[in-house]
Structure formats: C-alpha cells, structure tokens
Amino acid sequence: MGAEIFVPLGAFAMVAAIVVLPFYFKSKERREMQTTIRAAIDKGQPLPPEVIETLTKSVKLPPSSLRDLRTGVIWLAVGIGVAMATYFGDFIHGGDDFDGFGIASIPAVIGVAYIVLSFFNPNKEPRV
C-alpha cells in the first residue's frame, strides 16, 4: 500500500470527521448535562430557571415565514456568489465554458424554493 492511497483515504476521513464529530460531541454534552440534572434532582436541589431555559432553548421550533425567507435569501446569495465567481474567474483567465453555473444553480434554486415557501407558510410571525 503506497502513499497514493493515503491521500484519498485522508480526504474521505476528513469529510467523515467534519460531519460525524460535531454530532458525537453534541450528544456527549447532552448526556453529561442530563447526568448532572438527574444528580441534582436526586439530591433534592431545585432547578434554576436559567437551566430550564437553556434546556428548552435547543428545542427546534416549527418553521416560520420569516425564517424561511431568511434561509432563502442566504441560499440565493450563495448561488449568486458561486455564479459570479465562475463568471469572473473564467472571464479573467480567458475561458468561456462557465461550467460553474450548473453548480451555482443548485443553491440558487433551493433559495428560491425557500422564498416561495415563506409566502405559503401557515406559521406566520408578526412582522416587526
């Protein structure tokens, strides 16, 4: 097994580590927090409101129209940024293939879908 196999394996291991390790550490943190809270409850300690607020803050809220609109604008901006980088990169270097426009269309279409969903979302938040 030569060195030429380690580079691709290292790339895949890095991607796997970037994806898997945050989930692992988050679940480990939750387990430790639950153990601490159980020990406090078993000893008869009252839970401060800050702890309860911290525990409930991580609960995922249902999607709202404002959140969908913000997410859509961010995805649309990413798509436009990739398209501009492709256009200007090929323009500066004299190329005329613009291959990155296909890749740029993926986040742009996701952004447009989120923006459209923001208008049809039944969970309307009051506009401030």
Rank of each mutant, 00 (worst) to 15 (best):
E29S: 14
I18R: 01
A39W: 04
G81C: 12
Y24C: 03
I74D: 00
V20F: 08
P49I: 09
R38K: 13
P48Y: 08
G79K: 04
V20K: 04
E50H: 04
S65K: 07
S27H: 06
R31L: 14
F88Y: 12
L76Y: 03
V82E: 06
V82R: 00
T36Q: 15
K57T: 15
V19M: 09
S64Y: 02
F6G: 04
E50C: 06
Q45S: 15
L9A: 09
I41R: 06
A77T: 11
D90C: 09
Y87W: 08
V82Q: 02
I52G: 05
A11K: 00
L55A: 11
A77M: 11
D42L: 15
V82K: 00
F88N: 09
P46F: 10
E53M: 08
I41V: 15
G79L: 08
D42V: 14
F25N: 05
S64G: 13
I37G: 08
M33V: 14
P48W: 07
A77S: 13
T56I: 06
P22N: 10
V78D: 01
K57F: 15
L55E: 14
F23Q: 05
E32S: 13
G44V: 14
V82P: 01
A13F: 07
I92H: 02
P49V: 12
Y24H: 06
A16K: 00
G94C: 03
A85Q: 08
I52W: 01
L55C: 13
P63W: 00
L47D: 09
F12Q: 03
F91A: 12
Y87P: 03
D42T: 14
E29W: 06
E50D: 12
V51Q: 02
P48H: 10
S27I: 05
R67H: 11
A13H: 01
G89F: 06
M33A: 15
S27K: 04
A16F: 05
I5P: 00
M33Q: 12
I37V: 15
G72C: 08
R31P: 03
R38W: 08
F23N: 06
F25A: 07
V20T: 08
I80A: 13
P63F: 02
R67E: 13
T54N: 13
L21H: 01
G79W: 02
E50T: 14
S58E: 15
V73Q: 01
F91R: 07
K43H: 12
V73C: 03
S65T: 11
I18W: 02
A13I: 07
G10C: 06
I37M: 14
T35S: 14
L21I: 10
T86C: 11
A40Q: 14
L61C: 05
